[in-house]
Design a protein around this nucleic acid. Structure first.
Lengths: 209, 209, 209, 209
DNA sequence: AATGAATGAGTTTTCATTCAT
DNA sequence: TATGAATGAAAACTCATTCAT
């Protein structure tokens, strides 16, 4: 092989063993491990490959995890993009998003992970953020995915067009976050996600229309 | 000494060496380390104490870090509570908060860390959440601190009172977090926090009034 | 205080805290700890004294344990000596011994410990053996205790007098050992101590009469 | 590698590095260390392997030592079994044993170690005893090795057959141990092993015929 | 004389990384 | 290319001993 993985290769260019590694990392993260606590042996064992093989494709453990997370975020958001584009109106897009986040724990975790990566200042997050600015990732960057949706909705006149698109992205994020925080905090204060969903829905639409 | 530290002792009951440990942990986290990557030797060195001393007060490294984080969150939010109560109106409280988060990196990190702990599902966060539900922590629990503020504002008629207080807490949190995300996302699209601040301010007030 | 304990002081000269230490060590050994695995904190805690206090009386942990074991062996065998001397005949002495070892787990362990110390070649056993040759321990040395009994029995004509007393001591030891081994090995082959006792009794008497 | 070592694998299935570890442990024990005082670094250094390698095959230091001791006991006693079976009569077997124990310090230590393990009640001995009851160890279990010898002798009419075989095993063991004790007790009363040997020989035969 | 908090040297143990196969 | 046994540097953790009180 020529060079090592960067995490921003096109899907087709990713060797099958690397895909297995990515799946293993994400699986372990879903199971509650945290990024810096992952062990290479756990990853390769779950991936069903030899430990040495991981080092054929990556330079270090940190690299493995960062690439896997970048890959995962891209997968989820590119799928999200396709699905969102199928919805007819902005209202339906927001509704579909909230339903999706209610149904798919996997996507919810990915979204939360993305927010963490955007906000914290650990070395790990910094390196993931750096990878996410590299082409060809940019078009799947969550900020761009939502930005596109919003731009088109504004063009169609479904939402106001006097606000900078970046502000509107923040509004959507903030709404989704509110919703997901409420799910995670059910332990400490009692609201059920179903009750909250319509509030959030209204809040986002109200702010942008 | 009787038992080991739990992280929810009253400030006066915390031995001086333990305070040094807490300060060291927080200092290292502010410097960009992430919770599970901290080394006991780094902590005790920074605290200026012997390595064994840490184990006089705590059972394991995980415990040290979890207690320090719990202590820190409590310190920041109890101070925040005092300050917020000095503000005359809800509007001024939100304004003061945004200003504070812009000024004080320290508080900003604490806030972000708290939201991460509230939302992710790692073993570490779970243990911190568990500690935060233990008395006498509860009255400084961020959710309660903001809950109180919101309840009083609703009573004074400054904000609507038809929404569950928990939802309003989430709204405030996610608004603040969105603001803080903008700092990290400057890399990928250009919004400056100063520009976003008034928008977030409006959005929070708008959603709650 | 002048010098540190040697383990061969007369009972009256042993300070109360040292007696507590000895009891704690023996108690821990009875509970299944092995000599080199004992911890000073466990000993002083069980003794109900401060950790530093142990070092007022002893130079090191090894010293504490060796002195305690020497003390214990002496206590048990000096008590044994007194009791044996009350028995009228050699036959009754052997019978009483076997009954005692069946009843008193404590004494049994002491006896086994003594045999271990006589036979193994660890640094610890060497140091205990060395202490046991120091006056005023000698008169309670198990070999002498049994030697005296046997000499008197020979003088009274109860047992043969053509054998060196050392050989006869070995015969008694060997018989007792057979009995105690059978108790310990009940796990792997099925004999009950009660069944074996008469065999052992006969074996010893038979060999010496 | 699948699972960790248990100490009862067949000789051929034991990886070479594990054999080196076993040899190192036994060597260190022969040199006077006691089981719980062994250091992993001393073991691996003597074995000529990396420290981490020991943990590829075992879970803990305790495990390493227990497995090594079990292995050693089995080796010695299976060799002993072969040799004893070559002797024509029970008399010759006992004679050969005493000569062997006089000559071979190595075997003597193994024998003593075995008796200690059989009789004391430390956690370590308990775990070794437990391993020794596991197949395929059982057929080399010292009690069985001697039990077989005695059963055959009884069948050939060389020794009495009215005694339980287990009791006879204990008699042989305690006779041999008594002999070995004399070496250690030379310090306190003067019997030389050579003088004692014929006496022990007679005593064992006498008790069993 | 008695204490026990503090220590750090010395352990055990882990695990990313290498490299011979 | 793929492997996983072997490694050792670095980490967590222990605990005998000291010493200020």
């Amino acid at each position: 092989m020529m060079g090592k993985m960067t995490g921003v290769e096109e899907y087709e260019q990713i060797p099958p063993k690397v895909l297995k590694i990515y799946e293993a990392v994400i699986g372990l993260l879903e199971d509650g491990a945290d990024a810096s606590g992952l062990r290479v042996s756990a990853i390769t064992q779950r991936a069903g490959i030899g430990k040495g093989t991981a080092y054929e494709y990556f330079d270090s453990k940190e690299d493995i995890v960062a690439c896997a997370v970048v890959f995962h975020i891209r997968q989820i958001f590119s799928a999200l993009q396709r699905e969102l584009q199928k919805q007819e109106s902005f209202e339906k897009q927001i509704g579909w998003l909230l339903d999706k986040l209610e149904r798919e724990t996997f996507d919810k975790h990915c979204f939360i992970r993305f927010v963490h990566i955007l906000t914290d200042h650990s070395e790990f997050s910094r390196s993931v953020r750096q990878k996410m600015t590299t082409e060809p990732f940019a078009k799947y960057h969550p900020v761009n995915v939502f930005g596109d949706i919003l731009k088109r909705s504004a063009e169609r006149g479904e939402i106001r067009s006097d606000l900078p698109v970046e502000f509107m992205v923040c509004t959507v994020f903030s709404g989704l976050l509110t919703y997901m925080m409420s799910v995670s905090t059910q332990e400490c204060f009692q609201i059920r996600p179903e009750e909250l969903k319509p509030y959030v829905y209204q809040q986002i639409l109200h702010a942008l229309r």
